[in-house]
């Protein structure tokens, strides 16, 4: 098999519940749930048996309405929260032999710091607002084990220039930046340790159109140049159409449809996807 045919990350049956579950909903009695919510015990089934593969250099788009489990999926993949059940294997970690969800928290931290980068919708979550921009990038590099100031400074400078943050503002805190700039600092931070996998959670939501375009342009450019694999979550179909090679559609915590982006958007098979595509303004 060639290098491009083995997945860099494969996720199997990822489930995340908020709540204990009860006898009415635990035995996967689908009809009992109201969307993804059990009316008897109040358990929310945020992700239900989500499985997918991510291939090297690929952009995988995930669409779905609010509350469909997109962000929960992303948080689980970045270990921001524990999963209820499921497995994930990373080719770059132990040759894909270990389920990363079952590793110790130190190992998880290692994977986060060395093998992944994440850009959050809200820059408050991804950045330390009170520290300098270059310090924010250094944080990720320090976590990856670098203890050389000169090296970190030049790497940070290079990345910030790459995302068009002017040199004279590098030592300024992201707190003083506009939303678009904060998002670009976040992208620079996520890229600092050359992660093979980049997770983007609604990165352009809330940005104005021209800034949105420049951020997306930047991500596309980075992806081509560095050949990183990207999982991009968005509820904006235009973003998905522009960025993603393949697309997964989520509804109520389940994947209802997946396939090549063009295919999904031009010829939607699932009822929900049809509705979604046709509600595009």
């Amino acid at each position: 098999m060639s290098d491009y045919e083995t997945p860099i990350m494969s996720v199997k049956n990822l489930s995340k519940h908020f709540g204990e579950g009860c006898s009415n909903c635990r035995d996967v009695n689908e009809n009992h749930l109201i969307r993804n919510f059990c009316p008897d015990c109040g358990t929310v089934y945020a992700c239900r048996n989500v499985s997918f593969d991510l291939y090297p250099g690929e952009v995988l788009g995930i669409v779905g309405e609010s509350g469909s489990g997109k962000s929960t999926l992303m948080r689980s993949l970045y270990f921001d929260q524990d999963v209820t059940s499921g497995e994930a294997y990373l080719r770059s970690y132990e040759m894909g032999s270990k389920n990363v969800f079952e590793e110790s928290s130190q190992k998880k931290r290692y994977i986060r710091n060395h093998l992944m980068g994440k850009v959050y919708q809200n820059p408050m979550l991804g950045l330390r607002m009170g520290f300098s921009s270059i310090g924010n990038i250094a944080e990720k590099l320090i976590a990856a084990g670098i203890r050389h100031v000169g090296e970190m400074e030049s790497k940070g400078r290079e990345l910030l220039e790459y995302v068009n943050i002017p040199v004279y503002r590098m030592k300024e805190a992201p707190r003083n930046f506009s939303g678009g700039m904060q998002q670009r600092v976040q992208i620079a931070k996520a890229l600092s340790n050359n992660p093979p996998i980049l997770l983007l959670d609604e990165v352009t939501t809330g940005l104005d159109l021209s800034v949105q375009a420049s951020v997306l342009d930047l991500i596309k450019e980075l992806q081509r140049e560095l050949n990183v694999s990207i999982v991009i979550v968005s509820h904006d179909l235009a973003v998905i159409r522009m960025m993603a090679d393949r697309t997964m559609v989520m509804l109520d915590g389940k994947v209802v449809e997946h396939g090549l982006t063009d295919q999904v958007l031009e010829d939607p098979q699932d009822r929900y996807t049809q509705q979604l595509v046709h509600s595009l303004l």
Binding site: Q106, S132, G135, E139, I142, A143, R147, V149, K171
Partner: peptide, 22 residues
Amino acid sequence: KKLHAEKEYSGAWLMLFEQIMK
């Protein structure tokens, strides 16, 4: 407490890095 438990001390070095930058 979690950071100590996991020996995750990037923050301590980051604070020193910020001093050098400043």
